[in-house]
């Protein structure tokens, strides 16, 4: 998955996930989703319920970090 259209995905640990949710003051279900059979999620071995940290290259902000919740 080195394609230029695919940004970096990383699985967050439990404590990191909680920190992210707390910082954004939202519930888990309010995050955008990513399917567990998504090719990228599969390749990094993400499981259902994990939060993925996605580092997008943005034309406006340069670098933008966002999160997605893995769902089935």
């Amino acid at each position: 998955m080195k394609h230029e259209m695919v940004p970096d995905h990383a699985v967050l640990s439990k404590s990191e996930s909680n920190k992210v949710l707390k910082k954004m003051d939202i519930h888990l279900e309010q995050l955008p989703k990513i399917k567990s059979d998504d090719p990228v999620a599969k390749s990094i071995g993400a499981k259902e319920g994990d939060i993925l940290e996605i580092t997008r290259k943005s034309s406006t902000a340069g670098k933008f970090i966002t999160y997605r919740l893995v769902k089935d």
Binding site: H3, M5, V6, P7, D38, P39, V40
Partner: peptide, 14 residues
């Protein structure tokens, strides 16, 4: 096709 092969984030970019 992008979604299927490269995932949802790539589809967003597409």
């Amino acid at each position: 096709e992008v979604e299927k092969v490269l995932g949802i984030e790539a589809a967003r970019n597409a």
